[in-house]
Amino acid sequence: MGIFDQKKNNQFRIVARYVYYRVKSELTAETARTYLSYVWWLLEPILTIAVFYVVFGMLFERGGEGFVSFLLLGVTAWFWFQHSISKSVTSIRKEARLMSQVYVPKYTFPLCAVTFMLFKHLFVVLVLVGMLLVIETPSVTWFFYPLIFLVQLILILALSVLVAAIVPFIPDLTLVVPPLLRLSLFLSGVFYSQEMIPAGYVHYFRYNPLAGLIMEYRKVMLYGQMPDFVYLIKIVLISSLILAFGLWLLAKLDRIYPRLNN
């Protein structure tokens, strides 16, 4: 019979499998409750994007040529960020029952949340790129899109692990995070470009990694410009530090979480 080997090398294999089946099950469960089932993975992003297209591209006709693409690149990146963080906030907290029955390495839970949203976001990207192919002229710099995407994934993972680790100790944060995420919508230049900010503030604007990444997406997808590699590397480095701190926190408190809410 199998042995619950808690040695580290084995542990990650167990977690990886658990995450795989758990996310798969969550995705199936979500679609099983609808008539169109798997079609929704594609239909949902199409509808979200269609709303922005209709409102900003057809009704308002604002921002001039290319504003719809400009907007979509920002909106999709922000939605991915926002959904992942919101899902991670309660990821450990809501597993209190499971944790009190069997030992689970706690990083499993934010990892499940991030993986789940990553999968769904891939369909969003599919629709987005399809749409850009139609309304924009493809450029070689489009090949940098996956690179920026990867950097954003690392950023999301780092912040997800961090909030998931802290929230069980300060449950009030579940009420603080949503308004902060909403604030990030307006601070990240989803609706405006860097040029519209007074010169003195651009400096601060660049400190917001989400704003910077949205800007990079637009550079490679709309303006045929090379991404700012130094900036991307900075985000990766800082995110890695945050991620390492978050994982350290989770490891240190691994057997404390099941004691909370007791």
């Binding site: 658990y18 969550e26 499971l98 069997v102």
Partner: peptide, 25 residues
């Protein structure tokens, strides 16, 4: 009392699988 940790929206089969994985199988 493993049932306390079950995932309500997953099928019985998936729940068996998830529980067993956590028990190291």
């Amino acid at each position: 009392s493993m049932q306390a940790g079950f995932d309500q929206f997953a099928t019985g089969r998936t729940n068996i699988l998830l529980s067993a994985l956590l028990l190291g199988y």
